[in-house]
Write a protein that binds this DNA or RNA. Structure first.
Lengths: 341, 341
DNA sequence: ATGAAAGCGCTAACAG
DNA sequence: CTGTTAGCGCTTTCAT
């Protein structure tokens, strides 16, 4: 849209082809009501002039942005970026543009919600792994574009489209597995409950852990609930403290593979052998898990993103569509970091 | 831009405030030639009506898209996504939208170059880690938007803005380090030279490796140049073969940390101790490297992205700007996978 | 300091 | 089947 380097417009094509702009538009957009002869001639001119329609003008006229937005926190985290990958690959075959709004600060968070959900900017939006606050729920409801929540929104009303992964069950299964191997002193290392983004997946996995313990008639010790900032290094510290307890756990379930590696490091620091002295289970099954031979809970990261995008397209087609909820299952991947007690 | 749910336009505000649309526009955009009183009144109405300017209309009128694109292959690779992170964080504080075009197939590649470099779509573009082919170089030159190349384009003429990292020197330094530790039989495990994307960074690192070897008066053996698809698993296979040679290398330099981990795995497979039986050096210094205690060559991933975006903004301000080239340095990070011979 | 009017480039309803 | 016309919503001369 540089005005200096003159752009070829539909008018230029029309003049050159000896027709009206309207006809050119029809020809380009494959309307059936244009003579084959004229269409050929027009397309010829289009090629000669190397014409390409101004997409912004097109959008204004059509009233559609042909753009989708995804709001996502910390997209460099492997689990997040894999979901994003699913979204992107689903959109790739469509003419839609994809706007990425990464969130790492509160300001970006506000900006994302107030800018990216507007119909003059996008036709629809995906929110990935970012917990929805009450005020944001209001914004979402007022938003004039369809929104699909991926890996978030289990606590917001069911009138939103959602693709969720069953974190509670995942945490429970992992714990049950540990119990089945004879472990009773089982620790949990996860995010802080009161983290600045209100991330809740770690806590949900912890809830599953509690369920399993209770079902087994075991008591839940606070000392076995290690909370820290998300990441390998804090997890290492938290696990280290836990492992120094008089009655140290014989197994630890981590809220993510990244944190599980921190647990492994803590064990190394203390000269504890994994799995002989300590069993460890992670969560996510990112590539790192395989490298570390980590037993973990696999969740369908890519698929959750792909499905969310698919769902958004369906909603674009039929805005009145009933809210859809997909709850994806997890799967325990047994590798080498757990041994029977 | 839903037409049904009536949108508030500048006209509505104007009518309500008893002024003309032009004045509202001026008021909103902070023009000095509008009476303070009227501005107040207008802003009041804006708030009451919850008016927000239609961004597409604004773009059409202004002739600017306020959008930037980044073309990037395999953005889930940690090294790539970290560069992207640098780009995003630099753009975050600006009003620009960011379009991500991920490339995993030839079709996406073509689409990216023909769609994303058009002035009616974006104001500028960044190309990250994707080697430029000759035909693409032509497209780049014809593009009517400024383009900055990040981690690519060392083989295209110097009239493009570039942010490069010195892969050759990085490869050389790593090799020199290995030589200084007494190693002479040094292997290299990297991408295939004839890979479908023409990725060249692996080969450049290999060139540095060759330089170091030659400078030391050593001959370069083809058997010590292991090529495979990018990734941990192929690298494992390639390294495995190399380590089974009669005269197996005592040290291996990998073209990336990911591949270095494959080398480590190959060593484990063969019951070789690292670093006692085999020294290993990686490249990139992604988080995985620290976890594996891997000696590696650190390159400024985030900074390369940030700098590229910064450069693009500078070019947006001054399109006539002389082509800028930044060559970023690498740094050897000594950890625990190398021992003297 | 403000209003009127033209225009950004495209699409679509309306005639014919 | 094609031309004409009227917008889409905003910005920006050009008057006044």
């Amino acid at each position: 849209m540089k005005r200096d380097k003159k752009t070829v417009t539909i008018r230029d094509v029309a003049r050159e082809a000896g027709v009206s702009p309207g006809t050119v538009s029809r020809a380009i957009n494959g309307s059936p009501l244009v003579n084959e002869k004229t269409r050929q001639r027009i397309m010829q001119v289009v090629r000669e002039l190397n014409y390409t329609p101004n997409i912004v003008a097109r959008r204004l006229s059509l009233g559609k942005t042909q753009t989708l937005a995804v709001i996502v926190p910390f997209f460099t985290r492997p689990s997040v970026s894999e979901r994003l990958n699913g979204v992107i690959s689903q959109i790739a075959s469509t003419p839609y543009d994809l706007l990425i709004h990464n969130i790492q600060t509160p300001a970006q968070r506000d900006a994302g919600f107030s800018n990216m959900l507007r119909a003059d900017r996008v036709d629809g939006a995906l929110i990935v792994s970012l917990p929805i606050r009450e005020s944001e729920e209001v914004q979402l409801r007022q938003a004039d574009v369809p929104v699909v929540l991926i890996d978030t929104g289990d606590d917001v009303p069911d009138d939103f489209h959602k693709v969720l992964v069953d974190d509670v069950t995942g945490g429970r299964r992992a714990t049950e597995y540990l119990l089945s191997q004879g472990h009773e002193r089982i620790g949990f290392v996860g995010d802080r409950v009161d983290n600045p983004f209100d991330f809740v997946s770690s806590y949900n996995r912890y809830r599953g852990y509690c369920q399993a313990l209770e079902a087994a008639g075991l008591t839940i010790h606070d000392a076995y609930y290690g909370q820290g900032e998300h990441g390998r290094v804090p997890a290492r510290k938290v696990a280290s403290n836990m492992l120094k307890l008089a009655e140290a756990p014989t197994a630890i379930l981590a809220a993510s593979d990244t944190q599980a590696v921190g647990v492994l490091e803590a064990a190394w620091d203390l000269d504890l052998d994994v799995p002989d002295d300590l069993s460890v289970v992670g969560y996510d099954d990112i590539e790192l898990a395989e490298v570390m031979d980590l037993t973990t809970v696999r969740q369908p990261l890519f698929e959750s993103g792909r499905l969310g995008a698919e769902l958004l397209f369906a909603t674009l087609e039929d805005p009145q569509k009933e809210p859809v909820h997909r709850l994806l299952a997890t799967e325990l991947v047994v590798r080498g970091t757990v041994s029977p007690l």
